[in-house]
């Protein structure tokens, strides 16, 4: 590890942000562009790659689907020089559009193991039931029977769905990727596998559930809200369970 020690350690930071309101209609690629411009407006001393067209060293954790809101989005950046986290948050929030709020700016160690892109392992969601697909703000209460039905749904031996990717369609058993699913006061809580190894989107779970209870998907429109994203706790540290919020690493 001599090589690593000799090298000048880079300053890296993990930014946590919320995405809500009309910003839910901005897709992932545009959110990336949005933050590139926001970094310049905020005067964050972000580092660049070399070459003829240098670009900011910035990587996002899991993309968020269009229409989905979130309280737990993350991006990692490399800094040219250190900056006070509280000041960075303030400077960024001064230049945000309504519907984007920076809620955390933490320095993270400079090693591949900590990179936000690769360590994401799970994500939590809250699913609300809407009166109509026309508005994500007008919700209705879930039928009482759904609590029992969720249990039945999870008690199946397997939950096979047709998963479409850009290249192919395949039948996949999503049951092992549903870590938790339960009815709460605010809606259905989902804790799902996420990241590059295994990834399960919440709408796929709810589609399978809707089919399971033989409801017409057109009549039960949902809104999805991501609560947070998690990594697995590092080996050897037997802290508080298997997952830890990316913001707490």
């Amino acid at each position: 590890m001599l090589k690593t020690e000799r090298r000048c350690a880079k300053v890296k930071a993990r930014i946590k942000f919320r995405k809500y309101g009309v910003m839910r209609f901005i897709g992932h690629l545009d959110v990336m562009r949005y933050f590139q411009k926001a970094m310049r407006r905020a005067g964050i001393p972000i580092a660049f790659t070399g070459g003829y067209s240098p670009h900011m060293i910035m990587s996002f954790a899991q993309p968020l689907g269009v229409g989905v809101t979130s309280d737990g989005e993350y991006l990692d950046i490399e800094l040219k020089e250190d900056i006070d986290p509280a000041r960075a948050v303030r400077q960024l929030n001064d230049v945000m559009a309504e519907g984007m709020e920076v809620v955390g700016f933490n320095r993270i160690p400079d090693d591949k193991k900590s990179s936000g892109m690769t360590i994401v392992a799970a994500a939590s969601y809250r699913v609300t039931l809407l009166v109509s697909a026309r508005s994500a703000n007008v919700t209705r209460t879930f039928p009482d029977s759904w609590e029992a039905k969720i249990e039945e749904f999870l008690n199946q031996k397997s939950i096979v769905v047709l998963k479409k990717t850009k290249r192919s369609e395949a039948e996949v058993d999503i049951k092992p990727m549903i870590y938790q699913m339960r009815m709460e006061d605010e809606g259905i809580y989902l804790f799902l596998a996420a990241g590059s190894e295994q990834n399960l989107k919440p709408d796929l779970v709810m589609r399978a559930f809707t089919e399971f209870i033989k409801e017409d998907p057109g009549r039960v429109p949902f809104h999805y809200h991501r609560i947070d994203m998690y990594a697995r706790t590092p080996k050897g540290t037997e802290a508080s369970g298997r997952f830890i919020s990316l913001g707490k690493l």
Binding site: V22, F25, D30, G67, V95, A97, E98, A133, R134
Partner: peptide, 26 residues
């Protein structure tokens, strides 16, 4: 919060909904 002229169902169905929501910086 601003109320949009187009409902969510429409915005999620059409190409590039960001064309119609305003709210841009500046």
């Amino acid at each position: 919060m601003r109320k949009l002229a187009l409902n969510d169902e429409i915005l999620l169905k059409i190409e590039k909904p960001a064309r119609y929501i305003g709210n841009e910086v500046n």
